[in-house]
Design a protein around this nucleic acid. Structure first.
Lengths: 385, 385
DNA sequence: GCCCGTTTGTTGTTCTAACGAACAAACGGG
DNA sequence: CCCGTTTGTTCGTTAGAACAACAAACGGGC
């Protein structure tokens, strides 16, 4: 809802709404847009024209006609409007180019000798320059979205702590902006994975969602609350990995004991079925197929611990769906245990436990959303820079 | 922000914004409002005039003048615009009359022979009729806000389950509307207590807040996320009382084991210092003053369990403040334990643990907010009924 | 005591955004 | 080939907000 405003803000909001529809739902005819937004045809004509002038959308003429009536052009986002994404990990940096609308255009994995910030930033910047070296320039680059495995203060893009990278108090967006000349935004990687899943994957259209993801670097997550992303006061929200599932249990690197991340780690599960970390994608089937009593017992034990965290989230968030990803999804698929056998009855009845639907592109799509959300907030504004 | 709309919606939004400011922040001059909203003086003149015509605000002339310049009239909400509040409990029903702006005008506690729904509703309806029996009518009643100790489906006001009242699947708002002729809305009592605390008390102005309240009927809570209330997909969110703090611990009436509500109950603490449930208000001081080693040990033990729930909430929500109320506040005040000694470091540094600031009127103010939120969403709309 | 600057509210005009009605364009079907 | 249908466009209308000019009421300084 509006919180008071001028007619100009109203106009911007209409631009934003239409662009968002096109970005999230794909191409639509003007008539469709008119119906979806609930405005008049003439208003929509003005909005579409303005978005065209901004170079954000394009209108293509029909290939095959539907039925009776005047054939309608199709409005779609301009896929040459792009966001750069960067995802530093322990052994490599992933750099991507994502078009408005969500298509991944380019993707590179750059091995890094070490995780030193200067090294990572300069390698990323060089890769970005390479990706954008078309002459004449082909893409309209709006900015860089950074997905960091650690706590990120979203207000200024400082990485407060990223244990696995050995980073602490790194002004990452500033460094990237300085190295590339592009505006940048950063957020926690697990949160961004959820963002992608929420927009395109298993959480599409779900207004109240809890997301839990497990990987080599621990367990993270996020939540969508009433259609809005849960960020917390500074941006550190969603650390489900440090939910206490075993008071006084295994020490965790966070300083506590018995955290989900410490009790249900990927490495132990991989080792139990003889897989290396490169084969994490096959963990689910191997756990399920294994008849080894030790593996069965391990799955039962770890599932029970996961169930504690799931139950807590269920009771607190009353979500419509809980989406599991990474080794948590594998564990759930291999286990007989009903993760929501307990908990507040009213909340249990309507919730659905799902596995994540998106694969590798998840993080790039999520990181690009950081840029898109700036664009969508004020389509005319970001381009003015 | 606007999600697309007409100029009329813009107008409504401006009405809403101004009324909300007056409701939450108290009286303001037109000049103040102009600055706060960021509009022009002429626009504000129109908005205030319309709100006056709707009978929602009144303008009073200055008593004492501030400084130089033309003296300004003060715009304030009309306190005769009221909401009725009803809060059924095990032994009594509380009925209140709350004016726009948040002042409690009337309050009655009606003892009930049993918690049978029909009995409770008819007693409440009779009390309401009595409160509104002025001739000519003095108050403009917008509706009834119901605070229920249990799970309430907010979409239709059905009480799914209220263990302590023995209620299950009770269409409470329908019953109240039928008995009183007034529109009604219902929600969980703990959530409404938080709502009051968030607007007027220890959580005022805090956009990211977690609230935990303990009382005779268990432990509940709620959260404010990015300035919005956490309701969940159906309205059952905020059940922090069923956060697992001791896996496999004390059985809880929810069917699980080791819930916060089962492990840290009010009765045990009261009994330890020889208090009855009527003296719950003095629990904090008694726990603190007691030198009895058994009491000290009890406080330490229960605090540690509370700390698990607090830590989970901290990690997941990254709130600006965590507000404790009821016996959880008493426990915290009596304990030496730092509730946030553990957890994700970045989230710990900025959070503040506070005790609730509001007393008895908490629930009435919170329940009235249910009605106010309907009014504020569309000031002209609700009055049209 | 009077003038002046300051602050605030009011009035009339202008600007912008959205709407509605009429018209035009392009299709399928009889 | 005409007609109904659907879609896009044009233009006049309506509504909300901004802007500018003016009026009202105060304190302070001379």
């Amino acid at each position: 809802m509006v919180r008071g405003g001028t007619t100009e803000q109203l106009r911007r909001a209409n631009l934003s709404r239409v662009l968002e529809l096109l970005h999230e739902d794909g191409p639509h005819s003007r008539a469709d847009l008119t119906r979806l937004v609930g405005s008049s045809r003439s208003t929509m004509a003005g909005v579409v024209t303005e978005l065209e002038e901004l170079g954000l959308v394009a209108e293509s003429m029909p290939e095959l006609t539907g039925g009776a009536g005047r054939p309608s052009g199709v409005v779609s986002v301009n896929p040459d409007v792009v966001a750069v994404t960067v995802n530093p990990e322990v052994d490599a940096v992933h750099v991507g180019l994502v078009g408005l609308g969500g298509r991944v255009i380019k993707h590179a994995r750059i091995e890094v000798p070490d995780t030193d910030v200067t090294t990572v930033v300069s390698l990323a910047a060089a890769t970005i320059r390479g990706m954008l070296s078309d002459d004449p320039p082909r893409y309209r680059v709006l900015g860089v979205g950074l997905a960091v495995p650690g706590q990120v203060r979203i207000s200024d893009g400082v990485v407060r702590q990223a244990t696995h990278l050995g980073w602490s108090e790194v002004p990452l967006t500033d460094l990237i902006t300085h190295a590339t000349g592009l505006p940048a935004w950063a957020a926690n990687a697990a949160t961004l994975a959820m963002r992608a899943e929420s927009r395109l994957g298993a959480g599409k259209g779900v207004a109240d969602l809890v997301y839990l993801i497990g990987g080599a670097s621990g367990v993270g997550g996020g939540a969508v609350v009433g259609g809005h992303l849960l960020t917390g006061s500074a941006g550190y929200a969603g650390e489900f990995g440090h939910t206490v599932v075993t008071p006084g249990g295994t020490p965790c690197h966070c300083g506590g004991r018995g955290c989900l991340e410490a009790e249900v780690d990927q490495a132990t599960l991989l080792a139990a079925v003889g897989l290396g970390s490169a084969d994490a994608g096959r963990l689910g089937e191997r756990l399920k197929a294994s008849g080894d009593p030790e593996v069965v017992a391990l799955v039962a034990d770890r599932s029970a611990r996961l169930a504690v965290a799931v139950r807590n989230a269920l009771n607190v968030f009353n979500p419509q769906a809980i989406v599991l990803s990474g080794h948590l999804a594998a564990l759930h698929e291999a286990s007989e245990l009903d993760l929501i056998a307990e908990g507040v009855a009213s909340s249990r009845e309507a919730v659905e436990i799902r596995s994540a639907a998106l694969g590798d592109e998840q993080l790039m799509i999520g990181a690009a959303e950081l840029v898109w959300s700036e664009l969508l907030a004020d389509p005319a504004g970001l381009l003015a820079r």
